[in-house]
Design a protein around this nucleic acid. Sequence first.
DNA 1: GAAAATAGATACAGATCTGTCTACATAACT
DNA 2: AGTTATGTAGACAGATCTGTATCTATTTTC
Lengths: 185, 185
Amino acid sequence: MKRSEIRDHLLDTAIALFNKRGFHAAGIDLIIAEAKVAKTTLYRHFPTKEALILAALKRRDEFGRGEMRKFVETRASDPRERLLVTFDYLEAWFATDSFKGCPFISAAGEHGEADDPVFQAAVHHKRKVLAYFRELAVAAGYGDADDIAREINLLHEGAVAVAQIARETSSAQFAKKMARRLLAT
Amino acid sequence: MKRSEIRDHLLDTAIALFNKRGFHAAGIDLIIAEAKVAKTTLYRHFPTKEALILAALKRRDEFGRGEMRKFVETRASDPRERLLVTFDYLEAWFATDSFKGCPFISAAGEHGEADDPVFQAAVHHKRKVLAYFRELAVAAGYGDADDIAREINLLHEGAVAVAQIARETSSAQFAKKMARRLLAT
DNA sequence: GAAAATAGATACAGATCTGTCTACATAACT
DNA sequence: AGTTATGTAGACAGATCTGTATCTATTTTC
């Protein structure tokens, strides 16, 4: 396998296994076996497991937010509607086989110390997502864009947590209806 | 230490360490050291680590729901108000030093397979909490008590997730205001 | 095409994990 | 008081974990 591909392949494999088994339970040996790559290779790209976790979270963050943006932009042009369409993105995510809750919440659960770089990666991701909602709320012309963004964000988090445990997609549309009613007030 | 006390003491120590470090990262040796108990003693009470985890989650479930009930019942008598007071309970929980997000969401993150007993324990807890909200909604005389309960529940989950990452208590009151507006429609 | 960097395969070190075993001390119950 | 159950202490086994070292094969790059 070419060097240019292998790093991303390793990260994708790691993301999938961290998601499925958890960050501690998914060991290096499992990751290299799944990726069909030698251990030496992994350690040439990432000096430690923590570095691998951080790189995986970074990739997951950028990919996930990019996907949500694309999804939203192709389904609605009205900024107000776009805020609601984010819940349809959630629904599509929940419907995938690999959905096991938010990887950043799980990462924060396993690395809960405030000064842990993994926890900080989760904080960074959540801040970026909130900023996106605020961006949409501003574009929609809301005077209290900050509050609107926080509301959408809180509903997202709630829908994800419910879907993680109940293992069904309906919480996305349920949260969407709540959002619609709140935006109407 | 008396036998009757030691089991609960072990469970409380385990709960605290699982909460702080995560279920995989908190090892048996750490738990017995913190509890100041011999390893033999722990394994006389719990045959495996998984059994300890399950017993700890069961205790956490019963304790947490009992505390919320007590909190709510002492602060409001009107059933409608009680639904809102549950968010004040959240706020008090968030304000504790040990708050690191919902232990059951974290447990589900580390044991995400649907047939894993630990995951099932999380499902059980969430069902019970939802049933409590429904009980309050029924007492409040709402015709659509199921939907009201789901809304309160989703707002709770959202507030917990936000508080876990942002490390502040304000999401509880923020969710409470959202709940108030939703209940008014 | 040659030189340098990287991948593969695998053994290994050292730490840590769960769970067991042994030997002795203490508490509880008859 | 004496028997039984339980606690303490710690060594130990066996598995597993992260990370390193060695050596060969393959890519990349100049």
